[in-house]
Structure formats: structure tokens, C-alpha cells
């Protein structure tokens, strides 16, 4: 008989295994004081576990389904609310713009209650102040009735005049432009003078004799004598009073009251009518329309 190592142990192990299986099987069938066997208890426990698992799974599936449907519902609602919010924000933006526009217009009309009926409201959409030539761009043009030589006025005062028009735009020469000039009046002393653009940030009043009664802070308004701008429009205040050596005239830099960078909504008054008998071309009241060609206003700087 061939020698097989550990054969006896293997047999014994098999025996122990089989006997242990029997013991386990028997122990599973033993009745407990409660009236059921261990195996029944285990079986019921396993079944209970299965039942609980199935119930839990069913509940989880239901909850998941409900959650998914709820999520879809919420997503749809969220989309609707988002679009509604966007719509409302758009409306709010429009309303805010309208309100802002209304406030500007109110400010404009309160600042210029006697604006001519043909005046137009425009927005200053672009400002070019680099270099000696200062200009701005309006979002209104010929289509809205703007004409060359129209007077551009902000809430705080005069800004310039229209020097070119397109269908939907108009170009404005600002007062600070080096080639701009405007007839002014110093109301406190009643002196009439001419103000020129400095090409930097303001204007200066010229041709005021050194003997004139001018002090810093004097108000400067349009005189209406240039035939371009109507009278009594605020221009600025005398910043300082300097005497230029042997010169017969004072150097009077003016701080403009209307800052182009802060004036977004402006009035564009129609060009002044040419001087006619019995009419005041510098009046803000409406005048009969006629061709302005050859008038002094056109020859103005």
C-alpha cells in the first residue's frame, strides 16, 4: 500500500468536518423556549432581512422616483423662474433706464424751463477730449430733427454746438475745443466779452480790460451776441483773475459749470434764427424757421 502523508489526519479532518456539520444541523433544529428553532429564527431573521431589504428598496425606488420627478419639476420650475427673473430684470433695467431718463429729463426741463419747442433730447454717447480739439457724439441725428448749429445744453449749462449731422448721429463741438468761441456776459458787472476754448479742460474770457470789475467766482453766461448761442445760458465761473504783464486785458480762466463727462442727456436747441427786424435772435423763445446761411452765427468760430 503506498504511503500517503497526512492521510490519517485528512481522514480525521473529514470526519470532524462531517460531524461538525451534523452538530450544526442539529443545533439549528433545536427548539428554543420561544417555540421556534434556531434555524427557524435564522430563517425568519434572514427572511425579515430580505423583506426589510425589499421594502427598503421599494421605498428607496419610490423616493428616488419621486425625487427624480420632483427634481424634474423643480428644474422646470427653476427654468421658468429663471426666465421670469430674466424678464423681470430686463423690465427692471428698462424701468430704471426710463426712470433715469425721466430724472434727467426732469432735471433738464427744470434747468431749462423755457427750452424752445423744437428742442430735442439726445444722449451724449461718446466724448473725445484728447488733444486740442474736443468733441462729442450724440445718438440723434437728422432723422430726429437735429441740425447743424444746434445748441447743446446740459443740465448745468452750455456744452457746445452741433457741427455735423448724420441720419442717426450728430457731432458736437465742445466749448473747451481750441477753435470754439462763445459770446459771454458777466452778469455782476454787466460786461460783455468773448470766451474761447483753451483746448485743455476749460475756456477763458478774453478782451476784458484790466480796469474791469471782475473777481474770481463771477458768474459767466452766454450773452447771445454771437448769433449762435441764446443768451443767459450758464457757462461757468471765473476761476482766477490774472493780469498779464503789459497786456491791456485780464487773463480770466473759467471753470465750466457743465462737465461733458457727467452730462449724458442733453438738450439740443434748434439753431438760432437769423436776425430779423422786430425779433430777438438770442431769445430762447421760438422763432420763425428760415435758412441760416450767411447769418453771423454761421461765421462764428
Amino acid at each position: 500500500m503506498p504511503f500517503v502523508p497526512f492521510a490519517g489526519r485528512r481522514r480525521l479532518a473529514t470526519l470532524v468536518l462531517l460531524l461538525s456539520g451534523c452538530v450544526v444541523a442539529l443545533s439549528l433544529q433545536v427548539r428554543r423556549p420561544g417555540g421556534q428553532t434556531v434555524a427557524e429564527g435564522w430563517l425568519l431573521d434572514v427572511l425579515g432581512l430580505g423583506v426589510r431589504s425589499v421594502t427598503g428598496l421599494r421605498e428607496a425606488v419610490g423616493a428616488l422616483r419621486e425625487r427624480v420627478s420632483g427634481r424634474e419639476r423643480l428644474l422646470a420650475r427653476n427654468d421658468a423662474l429663471e426666465s421670469q427673473v430674466l424678464q423681470l430684470e430686463r423690465e427692471l433695467s428698462i424701468l430704471r433706464d426710463a426712470e433715469r431718463e425721466r430724472q434727467r429729463l426732469l432735471a433738464l426741463y427744470s434747468a431749462h424751463p423755457l427750452a424752445p419747442p423744437a428742442s430735442r433730447v439726445a444722449r451724449m454717447v461718446s466724448l473725445v477730449t484728447a488733444g486740442p480739439f474736443h468733441s462729442a457724439l450724440l445718438d440723434r441725428g437728422r432723422a430726429e430733427g437735429l441740425e447743424v448749429a444746434g445748441v447743446v445744453v446740459g443740465v448745468h449749462g452750455l456744452l457746445g454746438r452741433v457741427v455735423g449731422t448724420g441720419d442717426q448721429t450728430a457731432r458736437v463741438q465742445l466749448l473747451s475745443d481750441r477753435l470754439a468761441a462763445v459770446g459771454v456776459l458777466l452778469p455782476r458787472s454787466g460786461r460783455v466779452a468773448v470766451a474761447r476754448g483753451s483746448g485743455t479742460a476749460g475756456i477763458s474770457v478774453e478782451y476784458v480790460p484790466v480796469v474791469a470789475d471782475v473777481v474770481a467766482g463771477d458768474l459767466v453766461v452766454t450773452s447771445g451776441t454771437d448769433g449762435i448761442y441764446p443768451r443767459d445760458l450758464p457757462v461757468g465761473t471765473i476761476e482766477t483773475v490774472r493780469k498779464g504783464g503789459t497786456s491791456l486785458f485780464l487773463e480770466l480762466p473759467v471753470r465750466l459749470t457743465a462737465k461733458p463727462e457727467s452730462e449724458t442727456t442733453v438738450f439740443v436747441f434748434p439753431p438760432l434764427a437769423p436776425r430779423e427786424s422786430g425779433s430777438d435772435p438770442t431769445s430762447l423763445l421760438p422763432a420763425p424757421r428760415s435758412s441760416g446761411r450767411g447769418s453771423p452765427a454761421r461765421r462764428a468760430p
Partner: peptide, 27 residues
């Protein structure tokens, strides 16, 4: 044999009783 004897002779819930003894005796 023990399994069969258990199925045929032993009262219920004692399956394995004779399997134990018969396996032991066989060994």
C-alpha cells in the same frame, strides 16, 4: 445511510442525528 435513516425514522427537526452517528461509526 444516516440521512436516509433520519428521514425515515427520526422525529422531525432532528435531521443529522443519525448522520452524526453513522459517519462516526463508519470512520
Amino acid at each position: 445511510a444516516g440521512l436516509l435513516e433520519d428521514l425515515l425514522r427520526t422525529p422531525p427537526r432532528l435531521l443529522g442525528l443519525h448522520v452524526f452517528t453513522k459517519v462516526l461509526l463508519g470512520y
